[in-house]
Design a protein around this nucleic acid. Sequence first.
RNA 1: GGGCCUGUAGCUCAACGGUUAGAGCAGAGCGCUCAUAACGCUUUGGUUGCAGGUUCGAAUCCUGCCAGGCCUACCA
Length: 572
Amino acid sequence: MNRVLITSAIPYINGIKHLGNLVGSQLPADLYARYNRGRGREVMFICATDEHGTPAELAAAKAGKPVAEFCAEMHAVQSEIADGFRLSFDNFGRSSSDRNHKLTQHFAGKLAENGLIEEVSEKQVYSHADGRFLPDRYIEGTCPNCGYDGARGDQCENCTKQLDPTDLIDPRSAISGSTDLEVRETKHLYLRQSKLKDKLDAWIDTKTDWPVLTTSIAKKWLHDGDGLQDRGITRDLDWGVPVKKGDVDWPGMEGKVFYVWFDAPIEYIAATAELADKLGEPDAFWHRWWRTDKGADDVRYVQFMGKDNVPFHTLSFPATIMGSGEPWKLVDYIKSFNYLNYDGGQFSTSKGRGVFMDQALSILPADYWRWWLLSHAPENSDSEFTWENFQVSVNKDLSDVLGNFVSRVTKFCRSKFSEAVPDGGTYGDLEHALIADLTAKTRAYEGHMEAMDVRKAAQELRGIWVAGNEYLQTAAPWTTFKTDPEQAAAQIRLALNLIPFYAVLSAPFIPDAANTMMAAMGADNHGWPDDVPATLGALKPGHAFTVPDNVFSKISDEDRESWQERFAGTRD
RNA sequence: GGGCCUGUAGCUCAACGGUUAGAGCAGAGCGCUCAUAACGCUUUGGUUGCAGGUUCGAAUCCUGCCAGGCCUACCA
């Protein structure tokens, strides 16, 4: 397994995402990408913006901009924020790209050729005032069941009854409030997933090592009721991928676009092709990641996503791939996450509740967020962000354990020796015991990272940092120095060597701090410590370093309190 | 309504059916003084949501109940 293809669920274009969105896909995907690069594997890490669908059109209208312009701007914004969090995408593409248009149309054409597309005539609600068909949940009215007047066309939020838009009393458009609605006949394409049910079922059955969260959702959809249902893959919208059969028109489907969930996962492939275009590379560049007949047969493909994305990635997208009859790469492992809650409730984009990605970066460096979010990733159940927990965890782990270690070692050496690795002395039992301990811990850390056990990996990494402080306390070079400066030199030489070692191991979690540590130590070997003893001898006597400023400053009580207040209410 | 997940120390979380249920933080005590009032050591703290059952043995498996969360297919 020397080549790893990693995709993160693609964030929707209509606004800036909150920390829950970040920790559910992009951040753990980045952790895994950085780790695999660190291990020397060839990595293709892909993300993009998901730009189609009704909410994008509405958000653009609200911003008073043409949807294409709005999406271009929001893509730039999200791209900049991703950079701010040090998300190391090889490409951050756009689902509205020409590549995605072509590939989506290609897949649709192949599916049609293979008899997996069905044309269905159905009735949908059209709003004259809005000039558009309305998805069920964009229709509001009075619930026939409980009389609640804010019921949506798909479900009444008050009594939770499932509804059909035509059930509503006095229906109106949720967009404009207009009651000038009409039920119209419209033709749509359906992906005949039901024909692939057994194949999908058998495929899922082979994925015994996937998280329960992933497989249970897939199983539910496969077996619930009548089993996997066919799915509409077109919509009556202006903005999207025009419905075509490959590169030829699709009679009767003029003016329609593919459903956003049909084209979004295809963008993983398209974004890789977009990268080839940017680099001026031929199609072979991306084929070797995505076509098993063109070099992708030895690729391990891992997807990261929040639990809400699972049905599309376990069923619809694989159905698209399988149904094409072409040798496209299927996912090998799906890592899914639960939700992160905020201070006793949910993050809410509409209410502006919680911390959004841009706000997070405006108050603290990316590493603080990365560390907390990853070390508390909602892997087994929903987890909760509180400011108290955030402050205590970050101060303790990053400032006291890691940052202070770097500080005490470099400052001690500067004051007793110089700003260079001291010569003299030899390693004794204590030093060899530390090296053995760190070797074991490093192997354990690797095990957790390979398994994508994010929290366990963070815990192990923290243990590796702690081992340095334990060693210093036991070796006590400040005491040794008084009687045996040579021995103290050997002790501090080892301690100094821990800094670049820590930097390389920690880089997937806290890349900026890792760079700071490497730079301060004048270290240029970013290679993974496969050989821990050798790595801990990399900085030779006489090697110059500088004492860095505090790698992590602490979060004060005043800051915490002010942020707590600021983010409790409404955004902006 | 149905499905799935979760419930373990004050908090965040561990624990292939197998010693006495463990870590970190918080609390208490001691030590150290190189360091960002940092670090290290020791320690208090649990009827594993409740009630049954299976088993030589249950936090773990089964049944029922309670509480919280998510999903339930045209928002994405």
